[in-house]
Design a protein around this nucleic acid. Structure first.
Length: 157
DNA sequence: AACGGAAATC
DNA sequence: GATTTCCGTT
């Protein structure tokens, strides 16, 4: 058994939500279950105990602020077993998300980024648009990904 | 702080 | 492929 970084990583804070299997898989490598940075970000955003470190920006849907860059980097480094992780490197990874349309930068606002929820994250998970029995809700109606997951996850998996 | 090229790493 | 590492530029 690997001590620190097992194949299926445990979420920060323990307990609570955890992304389902498909969230860790990559198209090219079905067996790979390395957690994606944006999954990790959403994970932290979900928990109250990390609000002093990272939190949703009230007002703008999907926008969040990294209040403590060093701490977020430390937590990310711990999860990925990369002790040398820092905000400079983590932010580079976030910038690679710009072209992938997962995130974009909120210009002028320090340490502030915004998820491209409805159009960009959704296409990666087709089933999300499937409507079961009239109980369809636009993703944008949800407060965050987790409220959405609560709504759909319990039905689909 | 933020950006993005280039090479390395897994 | 998704970062991680390094770094020159704005």
């Amino acid at each position: 058994m690997k001590a620190g970084c097992s194949i299926v990583d445990k979420p920060e804070g323990g307990g609570g939500y955890h992304f389902p299997e498909w969230a860790y898989k990559t198209e090219s490598s079905p067996g790979s279950r390395q957690i994606q940075l944006w999954h990790f970000i959403l994970e932290l955003l979900q928990k109250e105990e990390f609000r002093h470190v990272i939190a949703w920006q009230q007002g703008e849907y999907g926008e969040f602020v990294i209040k403590d860059p060093d701490e977020v980097a430390r937590l990310w480094g711990r999860r990925k077993c990369k002790p040398q992780m820092n905000y400079d490197k983590l932010s580079r990874a976030l910038r690679y998300y710009y072209n992938k349309r997962i995130l974009h930068k909120t210009k002028g606002k320090r340490f502030t980024y915004k998820f491209n929820f409805n159009k960009l994250v959704m296409p990666n998970y087709p089933f999300i648009n499937i409507r079961p029995n009239g109980e369809h809700r636009e993703f944008r109606e949800f407060w965050n990904f987790w409220e959405f997951w609560d709504f759909w996850g319990k039905k689909k998996l």
